[in-house]
Amino acid sequence: MKIKSLFLGLMITSSVSFAQVKTDSLFIVDKVINDSIATKSALTEKSPIRASLYSAILPGAGQLYNKKWWKAPIALGLVGTGTGFTIYYNNLYKKYRKAYIAVREGTPNEFTGILTAQQLAVIQDDYKRKRDYSVALTALVYLLNIVDATVDAHLFSIRNDPEMTFKPTVLQDEMTLEPVLGLAFNFKF
């Protein structure tokens, strides 16, 4: 019986001690400060993964996400222009390839009597090379678009840090005493 009453007493005291809520003023102030810091950091940081995915889906969308409005039309225009050149050169390559095959088989086409098979082969190879270069450059611009969005997202919180500034200043040259444009880096801690 003594063991049962001791066990019951321990259960009651432990449940009462777990049920108490800490209402200390320091606890409340600490919670408010931590919540405000978490909210501030969530508002000033950008997700690099999200920025790179946006740019991968639509070139320039990652730049819009990072609030670099002026970069978005440049990225979209470069990728679009590269795609346009690729399509243009591919169509010309197909046209001259078809004409080359027709001349080799002896069937009449629009270049019969104007260009020889050897000339058509050279023209066809030239357009194929231009198409391949266009594809490579377009792929490079597309990847640079994604890398740019990712790096901007990583550096977003640093760029908006008021304690670290990087701005142009006018300095005086020690030899000629003329004003010279320079860069100043200020760091407050």
Rank of each mutant, 00 (worst) to 15 (best):
V147T: 13
N91T: 12
I28H: 08
L115E: 06
N90C: 05
S14E: 09
N34D: 10
N186R: 04
T116A: 05
T116N: 02
P59I: 05
T44K: 15
G9S: 13
F187V: 10
G9Q: 07
F187H: 09
I123Q: 05
F156T: 09
L155W: 11
A72S: 03
E105M: 11
K40N: 12
V147R: 10
L181F: 06
A184F: 12
K68L: 12
K95R: 09
R129F: 06
I101T: 08
K130G: 10
T83P: 01
K2D: 02
K128P: 01
I33K: 12
I12R: 06
L140Y: 06
G113C: 09
L64C: 05
L115C: 11
I37A: 07
K46R: 15
A117P: 05
T83V: 10
A75K: 01
F166Q: 00
V147A: 15
K4S: 06
V16K: 13
G9L: 04
S5A: 13
L26I: 13
V103M: 04
E45P: 05
V16M: 13
L177P: 05
L144D: 00
V135Q: 02
V141H: 00
S25A: 15
Q20G: 03
V103H: 00
K4A: 08
L120M: 04
Y65L: 04
H154Q: 12
L76H: 02
G106W: 01
P179R: 13
L115G: 09
S36V: 13
Q119W: 01
Y65M: 07
L155D: 12
S17F: 12
F185E: 02
K22T: 15
E45C: 04
T83M: 04
L64S: 04
N186V: 11
A56W: 15
A139P: 14
A121L: 04
L43Y: 06
Y96N: 02
V21P: 00
K94F: 00
A61Y: 01
I87T: 14
S25R: 13
T83S: 05
Y133G: 13
Q63W: 14
F18H: 07
I87R: 10
Q63N: 03
N66S: 04
A72V: 02
E174Q: 13
M175Q: 10
A153L: 03
V29H: 03
S47V: 12
V170G: 11
I37E: 09
M11F: 14
E110Q: 06
K2V: 10
F27Y: 10
I49G: 15
G80V: 13
Y142I: 07
K95S: 04
S25W: 14
L53Q: 08
G84M: 11
L171F: 14
A75C: 09
S15L: 15
R159A: 15
P168G: 06
K94P: 00
V79M: 04
L115R: 03
T44W: 06
W69E: 14
E163N: 03
G82A: 03
K98R: 15
R50I: 12
L26D: 08
F7N: 07
K46H: 12
I114E: 11
A51D: 06
D161L: 01
L120F: 02
A139E: 14
A117L: 08
K167F: 07
G80N: 08
M175G: 11
G106M: 04
W70Y: 14
E178T: 15
L171T: 09
K71E: 11
P73R: 02
T23I: 14
A117N: 02
A139L: 14
T138K: 08
Y142P: 00
A75L: 06
V141S: 02
Y89G: 01
K67Q: 06
G113F: 00
